[in-house]
Nucleic acid binder design. Structure first.
Lengths: 201, 201
DNA sequence: GTCTATAGCGGGATAGAC
DNA sequence: GTCTATCCCGCTATAGAC
């Protein structure tokens, strides 16, 4: 639907909206706040978006597409072992959440604020992203790297990662990379902690 | 502060408020909706609570106190092994989130909507609850049951548990108990999955 | 303790000029 | 594409009768 609608202007406005939605939450962000952040008056906003809902949908679409793309390229360029792929996936996920700290966070935390139509439209994207996770988890299960139920393991891992948004301090000593390694270390057998992705090797 | 204010009436209203806050979110729940759920008119609500903020504070206080109490009694009555204690804690946590499905969920998901004064007042409670978790995690680390950084492990485990609210289906086949066992199994060494708390033993 | 009535505000969205 | 001006609505909270 938005393949046509992808003016650079709209992209930029979407980016700014994502920032505010993360800071304030969707419900508490007013169209006046959005307009001010964009350097225009609130009335002008509706030249770019039909209504406030459409802004949310644009942000979530952007955030999920971006996460999907980053995850795919991370998987494409890492070593082809279950450990490395698990680690690459966790790291990509955390970087879209904690470094960008924008659209993907909105996609996760404001999903419920989407109206049913938008949810229907965007659920494909979300499902594709989650399928990527389940695939990587499957490989790790098949390799005996982790144990348990595929569905539950995926949900637990994603939950642990998603919740980092609530406590992570970007000014602190730990990088997303460190968190990813620590999480993978926690759920895999003791000896199976992968090192950083072949930097010093 | 609310030790004085604990009329049974107010308790009941708080319980109903929690339910709506979970369903709709705090921001989207109007005082009119709250009043209707309570069987009174919106004006009458302010006889029981100074303002909407105070309702949120009451719910969160209730939810955290309840979670704390349930966790403590679960720890007091389980076997005195790191596995059993970890499992008891996870199970208690999930039951307050998924069975009750009310005040504790609000405490976790609407914390940011508290005004600064209420946050200050309630952070003691939240800290006490998290301290309980860190203690149990510490014991498991000391016993070699799990590995990693104490702070990160706690946060990851709590994240995995807290996120269940987003996907758990109460009508489904899995009980909170099952999720707890599966999570503990995932993060502990392969052989160390504890059984249900001494039912068949 | 609950009611009715309403003040007062700020929200989303529109119209039409430029 | 942005502005000004404004409509209309629903929200929180209050006042005073019962």
């Amino acid at each position: 639907m938005n393949v046509v609608n992808e003016s650079p202007r709209r992209k930029e406005l979407t980016r700014l909206a994502a920032q505010l939605f993360v800071q304030e939450g969707f419900d508490r962000t007013t169209v006046r706040m959005l307009a001010q952040e964009m350097g225009i008056k609130s009335g002008s906003l509706f030249h770019h978006f039909r209504d406030k809902q459409e802004i949310l949908a644009a942000v979530i679409e952007e955030g999920t597409e971006n996460a999907l793309q980053i995850a795919r390229s991370a998987l494409a360029s890492c070593d082809n072992t279950p450990q490395a792929r698990l680690h690459a996936m966790a790291r990509a996920h955390l970087e879209t959440l904690l470094t960008d700290r924008n659209a993907h966070v909105v996609a996760l935390y404001e999903w419920r604020r989407l109206d049913p139509d938008a949810r229907d439209h965007l659920s494909h994207l979300r499902d594709a992203y989650e399928a990527l996770w389940e695939q990587v988890i499957d490989e790790a299960l098949a390799a005996g790297l982790i144990q348990g139920d595929r569905f539950l393991v995926s949900r637990f891992v994603m939950g642990a990662l998603n919740w980092t948004v609530r406590w992570y301090d970007p000014e602190g000593p730990r990088k997303p990379e460190d968190l990813a390694r620590e999480l993978i270390g926690m759920i895999t057998s003791p000896r199976a902690v992968p090192a950083a992705p072949s930097t010093i090797v």
